[in-house]
Amino acid sequence: MSKPSPKSRRLRVSELRSNGETPFLLEPDAAERAALASEIGADSLRKIRFEGKLTPKGRRGWDLHAKLGATAIQPCIVTLEPVTTRIDTDVHRQFVPEEQILEADESGAETEMPEDDTLEPLGDVIDLTAVMTEALSLALPTYPRKDDAELGEALYTQDGATPLKDEDLKPFAGLAALREKLQDKDE
């Protein structure tokens, strides 16, 4: 199976093989990875590999099956130190004529989202970079956190007053103290 150049980012639907698979491979260079990291909110992306194939689906559609592998660096939400995340995920999209998507939407009378989230409208081109970017942004952790990072306790109060701590606000903490006091008194 021969692979097209990694620079193949947008495939014209009219040029795809209608009787077989169309393989693809995207491995963005350092400048492309830096731009992509900025777009998805990561500090950097060490490597990305998006490899798969487009297969005809009937007369008017295409199935995309691919593997996405990437190493992303994001800031820890607690310490802001770099957190490295390895992503290995399968990607599946079905590019179909827009009327098929509308039919799928109308079949569920009051649904806000179509049940099949792999459906994409088929246009003149299939933008592999857009599919890769979306899959990568969905696979990244929303709140990256270092394993040993702990959120400390912040205390705020007026000058001269005793600050409230989290344990002071627990509703049964006072009852437990009262129970202990009563038990000590009975003894």
Rank of each mutant, 00 (worst) to 15 (best):
L11W: 14
L119E: 02
S107V: 13
L36A: 03
N19K: 12
A66W: 07
P4G: 01
H92W: 02
L54E: 02
K170T: 10
D90T: 12
K67H: 11
K47T: 13
A35D: 14
E103N: 05
R60T: 09
F95S: 07
W62C: 00
L122A: 03
A30Y: 10
P23F: 01
T142V: 15
R179I: 14
A139V: 11
A66H: 01
T118K: 11
E81K: 13
M132R: 05
L178P: 02
E180F: 05
V83D: 02
L36P: 01
E110G: 02
D105F: 11
G69D: 10
A130I: 09
T133R: 14
L140A: 05
P23M: 03
A149F: 00
S18P: 09
G52Q: 01
L26A: 08
L164M: 15
A149R: 03
H92L: 03
P141K: 08
K3H: 10
A130D: 15
L164R: 13
G69R: 14
S2W: 06
P114W: 04
V91Y: 07
Q158W: 00
Q74T: 04
K181E: 13
A154F: 11
I101P: 06
K146T: 00
L155S: 01
D29Y: 04
S137R: 12
K57A: 10
P56G: 00
A34S: 11
L175A: 09
A109F: 11
E167S: 14
I40C: 05
D186W: 08
C76E: 09
T85K: 07
P114E: 03
S38Q: 15
K57G: 05
T89E: 10
I73N: 06
I40V: 12
Y143S: 04
F24H: 05
I77W: 07
D116W: 02
A34R: 13
H92V: 12
G58S: 04
A104S: 11
H92S: 08
P97Q: 01
P23Q: 08
L151T: 12
E150V: 15
D117P: 04
K181H: 12
I77A: 10
E99D: 15
D147S: 13
K146W: 03
K53T: 11
V13K: 04
D124S: 15
G61K: 08
P56L: 00
K146C: 07
H92N: 10
N19E: 13
T89F: 03
L36I: 11
P141D: 04
L102W: 00
R10A: 12
W62N: 02
A31C: 00
A161M: 03
E15R: 15
H65G: 09
Q183N: 13
R86D: 11
A31T: 12
L102E: 14
K7S: 15
S14Q: 14
P75W: 05
R9S: 10
M1Y: 04
A177D: 02
L119K: 03
L54Q: 01
D116S: 03
L128D: 06
L26G: 04
L80C: 06
K57W: 14
E32Q: 13
R12L: 14
A34Q: 05
T142L: 15
R9A: 06
G108W: 08
R12C: 05
T84I: 13
G61N: 08
D166K: 11
E98R: 06
P75L: 01
